[in-house]
Amino acid sequence: MRIVLGAALLAVAAVTACGTQPAPDKDIASLSTTDSTSAATTTTATAPTEGRPQLRLDMTEDESNKVWQPYYRCYEQHGVALSRMGPNGELQVPSKPDPAKEKEAAQACKGKLPLQPPELDTKGPKYRDNFHKWVQCMNDRGLKIVEVPDTSVDPDGIGWTYGEGNTIGGEQGAKIERECKLAAFK
């Protein structure tokens, strides 16, 4: 049974991510002086989201795949074996899971990890209402969807799964899911 979890979007991103262009290494602190007469030197740190590519809710699958590719390439450069999938042979999921290498790559590549669309921020004030609208829309369009708890990221998290007797899948199901998500979260 396929479970799609609203709050798990970020967790999935951490395992299967890539970006549009290589981001500069933001993990290196920079040194600066306040003026030429001051001996004081300060270390500046960057925000964890600075320089990361931003996904948009209305992106096509092709556009999204392009945004993820630098992150995947970074994983590959850090020894994680990835499969090539999709119509253009994009790098995607690890082909030989290796938790130690994946953990190291996640740390090294975090500056290239695409940010999820702001509308899908599970802590946003409208997220829960919009999530319910998304599920309702999918049900109204013939998918049999059931909301389920998702405590993997948030103690009060929500997600969804296909209900019993669902007969719509493949491209048609993905199209309904995407259209309803766009309608609900805009």
Rank of each mutant, 00 (worst) to 15 (best):
T49M: 09
E104T: 06
P99K: 00
E90G: 11
E76Y: 02
Q69N: 13
D62Q: 05
P94C: 12
V80E: 03
Q77G: 01
G79S: 03
K101T: 06
M59W: 06
K66S: 08
N65L: 11
K96M: 11
A100Q: 13
K96H: 11
Q77W: 01
Q77E: 07
S95F: 10
P70K: 02
W68I: 00
R84K: 07
N65A: 15
Q54I: 07
M85E: 10
G89T: 07
T60M: 12
N65V: 06
A105G: 00
V67A: 15
E50W: 14
E61H: 12
P53A: 04
S83A: 14
L82I: 01
H78W: 00
P53F: 03
E102R: 00
L82G: 00
E90P: 08
N65K: 13
G79N: 04
D98E: 06
E90T: 15
S95K: 14
T49R: 11
N65Q: 12
L57Y: 09
L57W: 14
V80D: 07
N65G: 08
K101L: 10
V93Q: 14
E90Y: 12
L55T: 08
Q54P: 06
V93D: 12
E76Q: 08
M85I: 05
D62C: 01
R73A: 05
Y71S: 07
Q107T: 15
E102A: 05
E61P: 12
A108K: 07
V67N: 15
P99S: 02
E50F: 14
Q92W: 00
Q69Y: 05
S83F: 07
C74Y: 05
P70T: 03
P97Q: 13
P99G: 02
K110E: 08
K110F: 02
H78K: 00
Y72M: 08
D58T: 15
K103V: 05
W68S: 01
R56Q: 15
Q69K: 08
D58G: 09
L57H: 06
R56P: 03
P70C: 02
V67K: 12
A100T: 09
E61V: 14
E50S: 15
V80H: 13
N88L: 04
M85S: 13
N65E: 05
G111T: 11
L55G: 08
Q107P: 07
G111F: 06
T49P: 11
P94Q: 02
Q69W: 08
K66V: 10
S64A: 10
D58F: 11
D62I: 02
N65M: 11
D62M: 05
E63D: 11
K110L: 07
T60S: 15
Q54A: 13
M85A: 10
P94T: 03
C74A: 09
P99T: 07
P97D: 14
T60K: 13
P87E: 04
A100E: 13
E90N: 12
Y71L: 05
P99A: 00
Q92A: 04
